[in-house]
């Protein structure tokens, strides 16, 4: 059943992290990403790791939830790890399989890349776990709004994101229904070769397009009826205001990046 499809993965709560300004959380994520890419050595990863652990602790989100986001990525993780393992050929051979060699440099590199990927996903999932879709799009819109000066459609982008989030469950439900309705008429979506399968999608896709266009038209009219006329002169229900905690977090974030860079330099020759 697609009814219970929970989009995003917001984990409701009232922690400091939940209450932080979404803009600051986005900035922190960017800093954090900068941090993990500055960490060029294994020991220097300790800094972003500490930062991550501290953040999860402050967010009071179960560790299980954070790790769950890694599950869909496990194959990509293994794949990149193996690829990097054999790709970079260094001097100190650890294992010689004849057709390929694993070197110490290759191993370190593979571990580094895998760690970056893991940290990246965990960091972003912490953002979506602690920020509901509405404040998240609000935050993005406002962070990007200075770009309006160069005609970047920040408001329109945020509105599109909101509408997409709102309609994903509806469209999934509809897809399920149309698939069943066509199956009741003997349609077969499961067997046949690639071309046959692609052809079998027509009775599903055409109705979906038709209904999506109808929905779009009706929604546009409903929005106009409620006085929607673009971003100009619009106020927002949620007022975003940076508090002291946000500036403290920012300071911590900057310190984290600086420490990572320093540690990365210091330990560069060690491994």
């Amino acid at each position: 059943m697609l009814d219970n499809f929970a989009f995003g993965q917001y984990y409701p709560g009232t922690s400091v992290f939940h209450r932080m300004d979404p803009r600051m959380k986005i900035i922190l994520l960017i800093l954090y990403i900068a941090g993990i890419f500055c960490a060029g050595t294994l020991p220097s990863f300790a800094v972003p790791l500490l930062f991550m652990v501290f953040s999860i602790h402050m967010a009071a989100v179960p560790l299980k939830m954070v790790f769950k986001s890694l599950k869909p990525l496990r194959f990509i993780l293994i794949f990149t790890f193996v690829l990097n393992l054999f790709f970079l050929q260094g001097e100190r051979v650890l294992l010689d399989l004849g057709f390929a060699r694993i070197t110490r440099e290759g191993l370190v590199n593979a571990v580094l890349y895998a760690l970056r990927l893991v940290f990246l996903v965990m960091g972003s999932s912490l953002l979506t776990l602690t920020t509901a879709p509405v404040p998240l799009t609000d935050g993005l819109e406002r962070l990007l709004s200075p770009l309006k000066a160069i005609r970047f459609p920040a408001h329109e982008m945020a509105m599109m994101m909101t509408i997409a989030l709102r309609f994903i469950p509806t469209l999934l439900e509809e897809t399920d229904k149309i698939m069943k309705a066509q199956s009741a008429r003997g349609a077969d979506f499961e067997s046949g070769n690639l071309i046959q399968r692609a052809k079998a999608m027509v009775p599903l896709l055409v109705p979906l397009f038709v209904s999506s266009f109808r929905r779009a038209g009706e929604l546009a009219m409903a929005m106009e009826a409620r006085c929607y006329h673009g971003g100009e002169g619009r106020t927002r229900l949620h007022v975003l205001k940076m508090a002291r905690r946000d500036y403290i977090a920012l300071a911590l974030g900057i310190v984290m990046v600086a420490l990572t860079v320093a540690l990365s330099r210091l330990t560069a020759g060690l491994i």
Partner: peptide
């Protein structure tokens, strides 16, 4: 103000 026929196609936000 106006209320339309299809309940799904007039709500904009996720909350």
């Amino acid at each position: 103000g106006m209320i339309f026929q299809n309940p799904d196609n007039q709500l904009v936000a996720t909350v």
